[in-house]
């Protein structure tokens, strides 16, 4: 365990040092996420401006969901995109061999090798949005703390899904865009799941569990929805995390290297 922490520190230290060479990038990405935020607010406003409400979600509560979505988006820009999208390249060029030779878990290596600080503006803006709407709704620190649990579960779920999709590149090699499909579907998490028609709700709960990423944490924060959802969210995260690990080990049996 201690060895892993040490490795992690080295990984992230070098990654951040490398990324900080491009400081202008930081301003650009901050501006882009600010623009994205304005756009999403505009999109949400289009629904609410005539007095329509997503079933049971006031404007502030919907903002809460959007804030949580933005935080998760920042999380995936920081950790998931730079690492998991690289699995494809590793398989394609055969450099996965070097990873497998290292005396640490290959899943750990592949999932944490790089960290990119460019997702931080998103996390920050998301937190500001949560803070603003939470303040308007009279939420306390205890409520935010409570939401941390399902949010962590959501992050684990997201990571596991992404990792499993990345792992399928062992068979299909060029599947960059599979993760793009996932990313496209995750966009649904911008809005509370109650805003969708029944068929969509089923799909986004049971097929692509978007509901557990943003809606459940928001509900927990608002003391709605009951313990059942929280429990389901935890179960889902644990099952998917275990499955991801199993799946990776299974996939590795089919790895035949390339050009080495």
């Amino acid at each position: 365990m201690e060895r892993y922490l040490k490795v992690l520190r080295l990984f992230w230290g070098t990654a951040i040092a490398a990324e900080l060479e491009y400081r202008l990038n930081f301003i650009i990405t901050a501006l882009i996420s600010l623009g994205g935020l304005v756009g999403s607010l505009f999109g949400l406003f289009l629904f609410y401006r005539t007095g329509y409400q997503f079933a049971g979600w006031s404007w502030e509560e919907a903002l809460l969901v959007l804030g949580l979505f933005t935080v998760l988006q920042g999380f995936s820009t920081t950790l998931l995109i730079p690492n998991l999208n690289k699995i494809v390249t590793q398989v394609q060029q055969g450099t996965l061999d070097f990873v497998l030779l290292k005396p640490i878990s290959s899943q750990f290596w592949l999932s944490t090798r790089v960290i990119s600080p460019w997702g931080l503006p998103d996390v920050l803006f998301g937190l500001v949005m949560i803070g603003y709407s939470g303040d308007r709704l009279g939420l306390t620190w205890a409520d935010y703390g409570l939401a941390l649990l399902p949010l962590t579960f959501g992050a684990i779920t997201l990571y596991s899904l992404w990792f499993m999709l990345g792992a399928t590149s062992i068979w299909f090699v060029k599947i960059y865009n599979v993760t793009e499909v996932l990313r496209g579907l995750l966009e649904a998490g911008r809005f509370p799941i109650a805003a969708y028609p029944a068929a969509y709700r089923v799909f986004f709960t049971f097929v692509v569990p978007v509901a557990f990423l943003t809606t459940v944490p928001a509900q927990t924060m608002l003391h709605q929805g009951g313990r059942g959802w929280l429990l389901a969210s935890g179960l889902l995260a644990i099952v998917l995390a275990l499955l991801a690990n199993r799946f990776w080990r299974f996939a590795l049996r089919f790895y035949t290297s390339a050009s080495s």
Binding site: I175, N177, E180, V181, G184, L185, Y200
Partner: peptide
Amino acid sequence: ELVFWVLSGTFPLI
């Protein structure tokens, strides 16, 4: 790959 690109344009459907 093309099929996946088509599927990644689901934003309007959402």
